[in-house]
Amino acid sequence: MLILDCPYCGIACDETELSPGGEAHLTRFGPGSSEDEFEGYLFMRENPRGVHFERWRHAHGCGKWFHAARDTMTMEVFGTYPAQTTEPPAELRKTISEKRPGWSWRDFS
């Protein structure tokens, strides 16, 4: 069972208390964007085998959205952080790098 710590209320929640929101840190295109950009936003998602950044909502708790970093193969959770963060915190990226040397997913710089 997946257990994530809500960064807002501090409760360790199992997946029955949460609602998934898909991939985190997507570039959203507004009015005036091309059809290719909009199509990419709607349908093109990472589906990595390994480290993945996701959006979750504490649906049966505080109701707030947050991001989580986890390994899709082992279900190991590296950490959670507020949804208003535009990129994973440096300390979280460092933790992932120490546990998974050589991992790469996206360039957040």
Rank of each mutant, 00 (worst) to 15 (best):
G10F: 09
D71F: 03
W65N: 14
S33P: 05
S19R: 15
W105Q: 09
S97W: 00
C6D: 13
K64S: 09
R93F: 02
Y81K: 13
G40C: 05
H25W: 03
S104G: 05
S34R: 10
W105K: 04
G50M: 12
E35Y: 10
R93W: 00
F38K: 13
H52P: 00
A24Y: 14
E35M: 08
E23P: 00
V51W: 06
G10D: 05
S34H: 12
D5M: 06
D14F: 05
Y41L: 11
G21D: 11
P88Y: 03
S97R: 06
A12P: 02
N47D: 15
Y41K: 02
S104R: 02
I96A: 13
G32R: 05
K94T: 07
C9P: 04
Q84S: 12
W103C: 11
T95A: 15
D5A: 11
E76H: 14
R55I: 05
N47G: 11
K94V: 01
D107Y: 01
F108R: 01
F78T: 04
D36E: 04
T72Q: 01
E23H: 00
H67T: 00
R28D: 00
D107A: 02
A68Q: 12
S104M: 10
F43L: 10
D5S: 11
Y81P: 00
D71Q: 01
L26W: 07
R55T: 02
W103G: 07
W105M: 13
E15Q: 15
R93Q: 06
Y81W: 15
A83V: 07
L26P: 03
G40R: 06
R45I: 01
L2Y: 11
E91W: 15
L18K: 08
S97T: 08
R70C: 10
G102I: 01
E39L: 07
G61V: 05
A59K: 04
V51H: 08
R93V: 01
E54M: 13
E35H: 09
H60Q: 13
I96W: 09
R57C: 08
S109Y: 10
A68I: 15
P89M: 04
P7H: 14
L42C: 14
H60G: 08
